[in-house]
């Protein structure tokens, strides 16, 4: 039989490893979503740069396609591993989040296209930063970096802002997702 110090050390080891595994599993699932939205955002901004007049249609298609892909990935994860990453609650939360953004950026707000692009990017990064306080500093780093680079582009990128956003926002999410997959 072991003494209480050894028992305490064993429990701490279990707790520490459990935390590590939870974080690792969360990172793995989240990285898929980051890669998905990174690609979607990159395509959205790239197409908007070349066809600015069609931007509203492009973004509507990108968001709907992204949500459908996220639901499919969630369903596949549930089938394979018994764990859902995009269930009904996540869908409802996403819809509420987007609806709130639409309300203030399109209904009440009078923003320019440039301001809308900056608003949506920084708005979407907000939950990343907040999630990071609970699930891992990497989300805080990704969120804050994209917000900072968005503001930098907003003030300094001039007519290249949309292209800047394709690289910064789309590329940032993509790289973040790939990094998390490796960790």
């Amino acid at each position: 039989m072991i003494n209480s110090q050894e028992a305490s050390a064993a429990l701490m080891e279990i707790e520490s490893l459990s935390r590590l595994v939870r974080q690792s599993v969360f990172y793995r699932h989240a990285s898929t979503m980051l890669i998905l939205w990174g690609v979607a955002t990159f395509i959205g901004y790239l197409l908007s740069f070349f066809a600015p007049a069609a931007a509203p249609v492009i973004w509507s298609v990108v968001i709907v396609a992204g949500v459908i892909c996220a639901i499919i990935i969630g369903g596949l994860n549930k089938k394979r591993q018994g764990v859902s990453t995009f269930d009904a609650r996540a869908t409802a939360a996403f819809i509420a989040f987007v609806a709130f953004g639409c309300l203030w950026s399109m209904v009440f707000g009078t923003m320019t296209i440039r301001q809308i692009a900056a608003f949506w990017t920084t708005y979407f990064m907000l939950p990343y930063v907040m999630t990071g306080f609970w699930f891992g500093r990497v989300f805080v780093v990704i969120g804050m970096s994209v917000i900072a680079l968005t503001l930098l582009g907003y003030f300094l990128a001039g007519p290249w802002f949309t292209l800047w956003m394709a690289v910064v926002n789309g590329g940032g999410l993509l790289l973040g997702g790939l990094w998390m997959r490796r960790s």
Binding site: I14, S18, V21, R22, V25, Q81, G82
Partner: peptide
């Protein structure tokens, strides 16, 4: 400890 955290159908 690592495996116990996961969903019963999930492995590492």
């Amino acid at each position: 400890a690592a495996l116990n955290v996961l969903h019963p159908a999930q492995g590492l």
